[in-house]
Simulated scan of single mutants.
Amino acid sequence: MLVLLFFIIAFHITSAALLFIATIDNAWWVGEDFFADVWRVCVNTTNCTEIGEHFADYSTLQAVQASMILSTILCCIAFFIFLLQLFRLKQGERFVLTAIIQLMACLCVMIGASIYTDRRQDVHSNNYHFYHLTSEGRYGYSFILAWVSFAFTLVSSLMYTILRKRK
């Protein structure tokens, strides 16, 4: 049981770390001489511009920012609630509250990554210059980590749903 508990804690911490990296790091959309995320655009690795109201689709990027931040916060809250429930729950009870909060984190990261994917597909299909750069580029590792963290938080919420407090 102790090994299972360690695995679940390590899995949750890994999920939170992936969410932090995906939210903070500047590699959602990368090209040969630029990289961009939901916070700023950097050209030639030295000229970085914060994304503001002067950028196209700023309100869409704000939705992605909000959902990624909310998913990270919810994942951390779920971990602390899990630790509290670990010591407070009676034997045989399930970690339902932790599972619900982790599922909400999962949905938030899915919403954020889906919105970004949808806007990127619109940009590519319409040949629209997103971030005032050409649409030539590819999804970066932060974007991929966002989808991986979606899967991790989903699996984690399912584990908490199934998990019962035992001796």
Rank of each mutant, 00 (worst) to 15 (best):
V64D: 01
I81A: 09
W39H: 09
S114C: 03
I9W: 06
F95A: 11
N127Q: 14
V38Y: 02
H54K: 14
V148Y: 03
S135I: 09
I8K: 08
T45C: 06
I77R: 08
L145G: 05
Y139N: 14
I144L: 14
K167L: 11
G140A: 04
L133Q: 11
N126E: 13
N44F: 13
L19K: 02
R119I: 07
F80M: 14
C106N: 14
C108S: 15
L163R: 11
A105M: 11
L4A: 08
S142V: 02
Q62R: 13
L4I: 04
V30C: 05
R120S: 07
A17K: 00
C106S: 14
Y141V: 13
F79G: 12
D118S: 11
S59R: 12
V155N: 04
L145Y: 15
F79N: 05
I8R: 06
A56R: 09
C106L: 07
Q65H: 11
A78T: 04
T161V: 09
A17C: 08
I81P: 04
R88L: 15
A105V: 09
I8T: 12
T46G: 13
T46N: 12
W28E: 01
F35V: 05
C48W: 05
T161A: 11
S15C: 05
S71I: 10
L84D: 12
F152T: 04
F34Q: 00
A78I: 07
M159E: 07
V30S: 07
F34G: 01
S157W: 00
N26Q: 06
F80H: 02
V41R: 00
F35T: 08
I162F: 09
I162L: 09
L4T: 08
N126K: 15
Y128N: 08
V96D: 12
R88S: 15
L154E: 03
L19D: 05
F20A: 14
S59I: 10
S157R: 02
N26D: 12
R40Y: 01
L70K: 05
L83N: 03
V43K: 10
V96C: 06
F11C: 01
R119C: 06
L97C: 12
S114T: 13
Q85N: 15
R119N: 13
S142C: 08
M1R: 05
T46W: 11
S125N: 14
Q121A: 15
T23K: 06
L158Y: 07
L89T: 03
S149R: 06
L154Q: 03
A105I: 10
I111F: 12
D118F: 11
L74N: 10
S156H: 08
V38L: 03
E50W: 02
Y139E: 14
V43P: 02
N47I: 12
N47P: 00
F150C: 15
V3Q: 06
T134V: 10
V41Y: 00
I51C: 00
S15P: 00
F34D: 01
A146T: 07
I100Q: 07
G31I: 03
Q102I: 10
N127I: 10
